[in-house]
Design a protein around this nucleic acid. Structure first.
Lengths: 141, 141
DNA sequence: CTGTGTGCAAACTCTTTGCATAAGT
DNA sequence: ACTTATGCAAAGAGTTTGCACACAG
């Protein structure tokens, strides 16, 4: 393993962004780096903004929001809604589910293949199922 | 069955509120009436406020929010989070799930006994499951 | 160069809060 | 009377937007 840590060659990021029609700007690259360098993550805009600043990346909160939405539209992220006041963005774009701890606001992935939902009624007339989302709300035992 | 329509005697409301430690004020009664008189409902604060005004009930939006939260704390309502920007309140406090149509913001109940979720992994250490919530996101076919 | 992205601050939406007034018991 | 709820308007959080400047190609 001469260079890089297997799954994420930094060099892949610019191409990955450009491939989705996003110009690999300094800010987007830095944010993508933070997001995708370390396994599956669940971040809020504020989280990511803070992280960027801590990492010495000069980026505005508005740009973080823009980037998160652009990444989501481009299929690099998925948004998760578990609580009204914050928006979470999930780097895992495969179908999967979540544990959510209301107390500390933490999200944990549940592999989509692990869970099976049985007994689903037919969707209302004229609509079809886009996605089944399971949220397991946790309390401290 | 001499009087009332079985599940919701209007006379029951004041008692129902008082029983939960809520003083049956004019506004709370009117809102409770709107909420509980007609089967299961999913409303936003704005919805309910509008409805109240339409029904000629003078009530402020802040009071609607207060009442919705008080009712929720008292176990008369349950809050449902499907989308970041709005908070929904559900008059069905039994365990159940939802269809959610992103396009028109409509929520439809799915009986809790209909669905079975299998294959749930053990919750993270130190926590236990409070509630499993299934949201079936719909698209117009 | 040329067009897209960014930063900043202001605007916006939904929700909560503080304090004087009104209503419930 | 005494306590609790309400109304209003202002504050608050999170998010979005508009426009001048900066950067990537």
């Amino acid at each position: 393993m001469a260079k890089g840590t297997s799954h994420h060659r930094p060099d892949g990021l610019p191409l990955r962004l450009r491939h989705r029609g996003l110009r690999p700007t300094r800010q987007r690259l830095a944010l993508a780096q933070l997001l995708f360098a370390s396994g599956n993550r669940h971040v809020t805009a504020e989280d990511l903004h803070q992280e960027a600043r801590t990492a010495g990346v000069r980026v505005s909160l508005a740009t973080v929001y823009n980037a998160l939405h652009q990444f989501t539209a481009a299929g690099l992220l998925r948004s998760v809604t578990v609580e009204g006041s914050r928006s979470y963005f999930d780097t895992n774009t495969l179908d999967h589910h979540h544990f959510y701890c209301e107390e500390d606001g933490r999200l944990v992935d549940i592999d989509g293949t692990a869970i099976r939902v049985a007994g689903l009624p037919a969707p209302p007339n004229g609509s079809s199922v886009e996605r089944v989302e399971v949220i397991v709300r946790l309390k401290t035992k």
